[in-house]
Design a protein around this nucleic acid. Structure first.
Lengths: 162, 162
DNA sequence: TTGTAATAGTTGAAATTGTAACTATCAAGA
DNA sequence: TCTTGATAGTTACAATTTCAACTATTACAA
């Protein structure tokens, strides 16, 4: 019995994930010098407005230390501001600065284009098939559980642990 | 304008790739103490029989230094043997040892089961949709180009570079 | 030949990531 | 109040990965 790596699902996903990420990262890396962890935190902040670091870790599926370092870099760029939470001083409420918001507004259309182009190149049939397959997999493998990378969960239903 | 990270294709792929890999790695990690790079090189060797390190890098889409270190570990386990190529002494022809072959024969069925279970849980419709979507993406984004991680290409059509 | 460029593979060092420990704060019960 | 235990976030250290040389060998043209 023999296994063909190129046909093995986890391997195919890893390879495609790398390829798509490399493609997408062109925009935020070359234009704004962002790394992938930084882009993820930034994208969440731009979309949601105000978040804590733990929430960012949760929604980005990144470990809290990775988030901590990404936020540090974004802070250095003066793209975000932290304010202590009045009710719970362990928390930092994080928002984009004017400067950060401006960058977000310039970057997001570029990233939208990346996505649109992928789907356009696929064509409607393949795109629909892909969406269906991904959604089904997500429902099985990471929705809503399996966020082991994200450190502590800020939501009610706790992480299942390793 | 706002971008929802959870719906962004590169992010979805990264998340699923991580989840599927974690799922699959259970078998080779807990049973045989293999890392992912080691598993990939091992799987290729088991399937193809005899390869050079460069070929392994090519087919596994891993950088040649990563392959070099993975092969070192597999050699320590006495799972593979290297023999100098007669015609070109830069090359090492690598094959599994008896011991390595035995491990392969025990491990592959486990990995096949992993794959089969994923597809079974998806059901025939979703599985077919997924396969179609993945194949289309692969044709666009990594077949046959986009092997930038693999170091030098051992085949005729050269790497496009960064 | 000889010199130049290319390839196979390894290794050292820098950069990135993950793990564990740490500080500070909060929650809740004795 | 005073514990004990949990959570938010950072940091030190270890493991991994990437990048840049480096050795050895081959190819090929002057």
């Amino acid at each position: 019995m023999s296994l063909i790596l190129e046909e093995f699902l986890p391997y195919r996903f890893n390879r495609l994930a790398e390829a798509l990420s490399r493609n997408a990262s062109q925009a935020y890396r070359s234009e704004y010098g962002l790394t992938r962890p930084e882009w993820r935190a930034f994208a969440l902040l731009g979309h949601k407005g105000m978040m804590t670091a733990t929430e960012i870790a949760y929604f980005s599926t990144m470990h809290k230390t990775k988030v901590s370092r990404a936020l540090f870099k974004l802070e250095q760029k003066r793209w975000l501001r932290r304010t202590a939470d009045e009710n719970d001083r362990r928390l930092e409420q994080i928002t984009l600065t004017e400067r950060g918001r401006a960058a977000y507004d310039r970057l997001v259309p570029m990233m939208m284009t990346v996505e649109t182009e992928i789907l356009a190149k696929l064509g409607p049939k393949n795109a629909a098939a892909l969406q269906q397959g991904l959604a089904a997999l997500e429902a099985l493998y990471l929705d809503p559980a399996d966020r082991r990378n994200a450190g502590e969960s800020p939501l009610a239903w706790q992480d299942a642990g390793e």
